[in-house]
Design a protein around this nucleic acid. Structure first.
Lengths: 193, 193, 193, 193
DNA sequence: AATGAATGAGATTTCATTCAT
DNA sequence: CATGAATGAAATCTCATTCAT
């Protein structure tokens, strides 16, 4: 599928395996579990090879973040051009797999300032993308009003979705069914069944 | 239940200083920065003393969490019995100081399973508390309907607040003003100006 | 001899053993051979203990330098108040054991800027000490003239001594006997036999 | 002896660039800073290429030393056949650029025994060269005596020059002006103004 | 002639924890 | 109550070197 033209660093299968391993560790055990050693074990390579591809952990995290963020933007674009854009966006935001990774990166940013700037840039981009789309999507509904600025709606959706995912990861379930129902009702109202 | 005076360990000023130091580190630099050594430096005590009071880091984190959670429950109870309970609750949830600590504990839970159960217990308790209060507070409004189960409303408020705080910590501002405005509008609707 | 009053860090026998080991490695194999591990082996302690006493290698080197420099100043003071001060000073300067360590520290300073300042301070102090003494000692000789400023004489003696020691360490012997003879002649001239 | 054109490895511009880079690192940051990686960065080539030309670091250092030593001998020969041979020799010995490299190699020899023998051979050769020249140059002066064997004079000049350069590198200045003045006076005495 | 990939060794440093006093 | 000493584990990073192409 991915061409094999350039065998070099950027597309190496080993490199991808290392990033995959790091991502799995991050989602499963939290960012603090992502050490060169454990990544190596998970990816089934020697520890020194991890540092060969990513001379510093900062670089590994940054590369992983950019890969994930790019994928996320792509999925959002796809969702927003699907038949039921809002439902698709909501499904995406509240997807346990993707959201958990995003949350870990946010926590990591507190500790690694190199990540922080990157997250801010990407998040603003994602919010802007969603806000523009929402402006269109909410037209013709009672939310097409200055009382519901689309950037605010975007943030609220993201916040609720992230809240659900974070809590599910922790084994908290109270209010989840109810909150999802409220969102579903809203989706039905603005996008039909 | 708690004895009047139980001298010694539990109420020692040193012990409090250690917990305060750990909390400050956690908020400022993230949970991974909370090590016995750095706590000791911050609290201005010898490292060995930290371990004297908290034989393992798990115990330190658990103690710190319980202290913070108890305080949080107390503040919520107070907020809910204030003149404008919903505004007070919202102010509390979106308070940068308190929320940042809560978010760090959530991230920590991914890494320290001993924390996870404790967080779940407390969170369910807080949600339940809020849900009961909301049931009363929303009576007489158009949200007193099965379309807006109070536990769901509680979760949504918490999620949005946490989203705002997390993003502000990262320097993300897009949509914040707008989201706060939407919440303010809702608060005005259900609680008056 | 050294009192044992304060058993703490500063006078611990272990600490001294570590410093001694570092010094031996430095003289025998060069500064680059002084690693925490090898010091530990040489001192017969566990590697982690080296870092317990000297949290960073900079601190170890600085402590070692100060100890050596203080000893050196003491020896110079003693030499300068001995019956034949110039001969004693020359013997001291060209003593293989002490000079080799000094030379290693000079080389190390190129690499560890924290050492550089310390060396400069101590060296200026030693030169000043010698210059003052030489001013007195050369009185009444034909070197008590503005053509032979004592600070310059001090530097020349130190340079020649260091040159001899450096070269001897490297197995270079050409001119050594001759150079020593020239110095001896000069010493005899200004200080008698 | 050296062939006219011997293409390939020995005279490659890349090889020269690598040696130049190593030399610059050695002078600027000390011998311990000369690693294959940093040499590569400095020379703007890939690290593996450094090892292609110099399979081991020992070979790199030896090659670099021989190149520098040959150049130094050439410069000495030139100096000694100039109009004011002693002044030229002194200028050469106390030239910061050249002397600093020589000093680093002496320090390195303590750590890499393969270098030591090479330095000894070259140094003896240089001293012999100078001693022979000095024998002639001092003829007709009051230093043309068995009290001032020329090999000893050579060593003394070298030692003083090296002392000045080493100390200047460390930011030590006490006595320098004075020592240089003493040498200048001597040069004037034996070589005229 | 040049280089990407891989790897074992080892350096520095940080950590949590145990123990004796 | 408090602390100095000691230690094993592990993390990050740097290095030299080998190998296949």
């Amino acid at each position: 599928m991915t061409e094999k033209r350039r065998v070099g660093t950027a597309r190496s299968a080993t490199r991808t395996a290392i990033l995959d391993a790091a991502q799995k560790l991050m989602v499963d055990d939290g960012y603090a579990a992502v050490t060169a050693r454990r990544v190596a074990v998970q990816a089934n390579v020697k520890p020194a090879l991890v540092q060969y591809y990513f001379p510093s952990m900062d670089e590994l995290f940054l590369t992983l973040y950019r890969r994930a963020a790019d994928g996320s933007i792509d999925r959002q674009v796809a969702a927003l051009s699907s038949p039921q854009p809002l439902r698709a966006l909501w499904a995406l935001s509240s997807d346990t797999g993707y959201a958990a990774l995003a949350i870990e990166f946010m926590a990591l940013a507190n500790h690694r300032k190199s990540i922080q700037a990157e997250i801010a840039i990407y998040s603003e981009r994602a919010r802007d993308l969603q806000a523009r789309a929402l402006t269109t999507l909410l037209q013709g509904t009672r939310y097409a009003s200055s009382a519901f600025p689309s950037a605010g709606v975007s943030l609220i959706l993201a916040g609720v979705a992230r809240g659900l995912v974070m809590e599910e990861n922790l084994g908290i379930h109270g209010g989840h069914r109810e909150a999802r129902a409220i969102v579903e009702t809203w989706l039905a109202e603005v996008e039909g069944t």
